[in-house]
Write a protein that binds this DNA or RNA. Sequence first.
DNA 1: AGTGCGATTGACT
DNA 2: GTCAATCGCACTA
Length: 208
Amino acid sequence: MTDERGLPSLSTIRRLERAALPAGTVALARYLIGKTLVREHPKGRLCGRIVETEAYPPGDAAGHAFRGRTPRNRSLFLERGHAYVHIAYGIYTLLNVSSERSGLGGGVLLRALEPLDGVDVMECLRGTTRRRDLARGPGRLAAALGIDLSFDGLDLCAAGPLWLGTPARTVREIGVSVRIGITREAERPLRFYERGSSFVSGSRQLNP
DNA sequence: AGTGCGATTGACT
DNA sequence: GTCAATCGCACTA
């Protein structure tokens, strides 16, 4: 079933099973492009299509798991498919998906969504009506979905307030670039995005 | 117990 | 293009 734009109707989106998630941080970061993220918000269902991710694999000095497990980053060490939520620059909430087997430590940062459903609620949460800017950037993404630190550790493959869903329509070509806003291991090509999407963050140079 | 530092954003020149 | 806001927490002592 599709709507007038050729998108599968939102009612056909179902939760991703953990077994469907590829093992390994980099593979998961690529896999998540085009998948959906669904937020069961008190004001209604919010849904977006993931169009940009970054991989922070085990052993990566730029990753929060690099120095071992601590109270803050313990969710990165959960089996793949759990939420790791943290605060950046004291202001912004960022959402990651844990990406390795239990006890290892890696994550995929979700950096941008193409809003699909619940746009009016997202506009309210973000304080803007520019659809392109609702979830373009990791801080904006979490804000648009009403995600805070209480979501840390949540199983995104289970029924609940936040979960990963099957793709909405076909994914265009996937581009690769260096990651944004880091200093260590800055040259590694671990950022993935849907080429041609206007909902992707970053400079034009990073989105060839 | 004090210090330093971000996986960012929006306002402004 | 520049720049400051602001919080949790890891690190040092």
